[in-house]
Design a protein around this nucleic acid. Structure first.
Lengths: 113, 113
DNA sequence: CGGCTCCCCTAGAGTGTCTAGGGGACGGCA
DNA sequence: TGCCGTCCCCTAGACACTCTAGGGGAGCCG
């Protein structure tokens, strides 16, 4: 097994994707992959559980509909709570990456206390 | 449970810390916490398993010794393989964060292909 | 009709982190 | 001397998330 994604990041990415309006799962995955120039490959086995998780938590709302290709599809819409969650996760992500960056660029000299 | 750390990041941080020379576990945790201005709190329950994991994988080498405070301590030294691993994880981290950044700053318009 | 793409779903394995403990031993202070 | 705080090590079990590897159904096109 190889982790292609930092764990805990997927929710944030999906929520962000949905800020552009309702979308079905397949489209979310495609959009993410396209947007990151294939750097991120969201597996369906990760995406759908994530979508369901977020539905349960009230971050998104799901409705059956019909896709652009005239196919049965479930559209997910961001809720107010989802928006809040996104904001929170984003700032948390920011904090973390900055902290990691500090470490990566530091000079861990021989205990220069 | 709250994930304070992105999963998979800890190894990289510890490896980076050890580039400054051999260090014992407690010191690694302190250094990380200090370097990130308390943004990162490395729990012992995560650190020691990580250290052992990395020892098994040959990324670090462990030797008993005596600390600055005259206490029994296990010093970890970075191996050549550990150095390689660090390089790999760093670039992987770089790729991931850039991809996430792209998503976070994108405008997921209503399918503006 | 067959096959491709779209679109949905799940069980199970695997990995890693955290919680919540349990020590031992040195040093300083009463 | 005895106690306590800090330093330093360790582990089991719970938990969350991702991935692998499957299994569909349905529209569209040759």
């Amino acid at each position: 097994m190889q982790v292609d994604l930092l764990q805990g990041t997927l929710d944030m990415l999906v929520l962000k994707t949905l800020t552009g309006g309702p979308m079905h799962g397949y489209a979310v995955a495609s959009w993410l992959q396209r947007t990151t120039d294939d750097a991120l490959c969201v597996e369906e086995g990760s995406l759908y559980p994530a979508l369901h998780r977020m539905t349960r938590r009230g971050w998104v709302k799901a409705d059956w509909g019909v896709s652009e290709n005239n196919r049965r599809a479930k559209f997910y819409t961001l809720t107010a709570e989802g928006r809040r969650q996104l904001k929170e996760e984003s700032s948390s992500w920011e904090r973390l990456t900055q902290a990691v960056s500090k470490v990566l660029h530091a000079q861990p000299a021989t205990q220069g206390a």
